[in-house]
């Protein structure tokens, strides 16, 4: 086994371990803390003891806790999330379309912001001390440090309520009844609702990429290899492209990390824009104490983070020759 394979095996092992621990924590939080969702059902008093037992048996709550845990593990790790308590539908049938709605908003936004802000960051890093640099730093610092729901509210007030350009919330008009995928995601009506949340997402994440790329270029600017390129007679732009290429690594790994946190980061955006995504579904499910739904959505979010962390680590080790793959150790 090469060093890299050994490193890969270790990271995958760690990811599996983390998944098990995360899943266990979700179980403990949901079962051990006082106030199970069924309690309210039982204390409401409309059920006979027989009916209560029947419901408990249906959800496996009559078994000892360790058995419940094993059943839970088997189910959740095979993506069998059970039935929603309130909506009497399989959890997966409820969550899958929400997950799609979230991804359709976030993946294009993240790709856009990664490309645009990285290029912009390289440009302002190269022109250090310029007005453009100062302006872009103030702008992106404001955008990335302000909680995203506040930016979203500002945008809704300006573009929906004041200028009346775009709808303030939802994913489509109430009257629209799209039919089929193409119609759902490719119509003008959808696009009209899409543009505002998309813009806010792009702006919110722009700061991190811009600063990473800027710092990367600033650090590289005085380095030897650039002096060589200058001596070779390359133009400013050609030099910038080479400095930029050498500072891509943090940007790439950062992109992977962000992709993992994507769901959780935008719970707030989905709430402000009433975007029917998985984050908003989670908030609603928590409010309604629909815990199979809560459990499944938290699990999906945790899994996304774990997998993308793994990808980021591996990318970093693969692309950066200065990272020792045998681990940091003594």
């Amino acid at each position: 086994m090469s060093d890299f394979q050994r490193f890969l095996a270790k990271r995958i092992g760690i990811a599996i371990g983390l998944t098990l621990i995360a899943v266990t924590i979700i179980f403990v939080v949901l079962r051990m803390l006082p106030g199970s969702p069924f309690e309210s059902l039982i204390t409401a008093g409309n059920l006979t003891q027989g009916q209560v037992d029947e419901i408990m048996a249906l959800y496996g709550l009559d078994k000892p806790i360790w058995q419940q845990y094993l059943i839970y593990l088997r189910n959740i790790l095979t993506f069998q999330f059970g039935y929603s308590i309130l909506q009497s539908q399989p959890v997966w049938d409820i969550l899958a379309p929400k997950l799609a709605n979230t991804l359709i908003l976030l993946v294009p936004a993240l790709v856009t912001t990664a490309v645009v802000s990285t290029l912009l960051g390289m440009y302002v890093g190269w022109n250090r001390g310029s007005k453009a640099e100062t302006a872009s730093i103030i702008g992106t610092t404001f955008l990335r440090s302000t909680p995203v729901f506040i930016t979203a509210i500002f945008f809704v007030i300006i573009f929906s309520y004041t200028l009346d350009l775009v709808p303030a919330f939802g994913m489509r008009s109430i009257t629209a009844t799209p039919d089929g995928l193409l119609d759902t995601y490719m119509s003008m009506d959808f696009l009209h609702h899409y543009i505002l949340p998309f813009t806010v997402t792009v702006l919110f994440y722009s700061g991190d990429f811009l600063l990473l790329a800027r710092n990367g270029v600033v650090e590289k600017k005085g380095s030897e290899f650039l002096k060589l390129h200058r001596a070779k007679g390359l133009s400013e732009n050609e030099q910038l492209m080479r400095a930029g290429r050498n500072s891509m690594l943090p940007v790439i790994t950062y992109f992977a990390l962000r992709l993992g946190m994507i769901f959780q980061g935008l719970i707030l955006l989905e709430v402000v824009f009433a975007w029917p995504g998985i984050g908003r579904a989670l908030v609603l499910a928590i409010q309604q104490q629909d815990y199979p739904l809560v459990q499944a959505s938290v699990f999906i979010m945790a899994l996304a983070v774990i997998i993308m962390n793994l990808v980021a680590d591996v990318l970093y080790a693969y692309f950066d020759p200065t990272v020792s793959v045998s681990g940091g150790g003594a």
Binding site: V29, Q264, I267, S297, A302
Partner: peptide
């Protein structure tokens, strides 16, 4: 581990 537990959902929970 704390990196892999998503903050918002866990805090809400």
């Amino acid at each position: 581990l704390t990196f892999s537990l998503p903050f918002m959902p866990m805090a809400l929970l």
